[in-house]
Amino acid sequence: MAERLLTFDGLQAGYEGPVVGPLGFSVGAGEVVGLAGPNGCGKSTIMRVLTGGARVFAGTVTRREGLRVAYQAQSGLNLDPSSGEIPLRVREVVRLMDVAPADLPARLKALLDVRVDRLSGGEQQLLFVWCAIGHPAELLLLDEPTNNLDPDGEALLTETLRALAPGRAALVISHERDFLEQVADRMVEIA
């Protein structure tokens, strides 16, 4: 059996009160696990437990000791609508996540010296997804990675997740059932 990187056991999580659970599942090395369910069922809340954005009300979350995590948030660049400015080049953004520019897809390599706030929505999404994928973490948390991606970007993401290195794993949230079925080894349904 694959080494367990992350285990949820009887988890109930939320904010002021529980919004999801109880539920239990694990993510093993080499696996891609899909979290599926209708909008508002608490899929993102499960990831926010790991990123400190949500509270655990019951149950346990066990991480393998020394586990490194790379997180792609659903919010993306989340620009301030009043200014909409972030003066960082793509090259500077990927360096923040310890991603080598050489590991980026060709489409992003061509944009290395462009400011992130001047990228299209699809380009920004591709960048943020690849900042997680290219990060040297064992566990990837991808929250709606296909948002704003064009068909080519989605195909590239599918191919990359299917070829994940054996020691790595991914927990993927998506409202696109077809995408999840293509990339996930297992699905966890959230009621």
Partner: peptide, 21 residues
């Protein structure tokens, strides 16, 4: 600096790795 920039661009990333954001 990198911690502050990461907290803005990748909210949750450092917290998920146990850093005192």
């Amino acid at each position: 600096s990198p911690h502050l920039l990461r907290a803005r661009l990748f909210p949750g990333q450092d917290r998920a790795n146990g850093r005192p954001v």
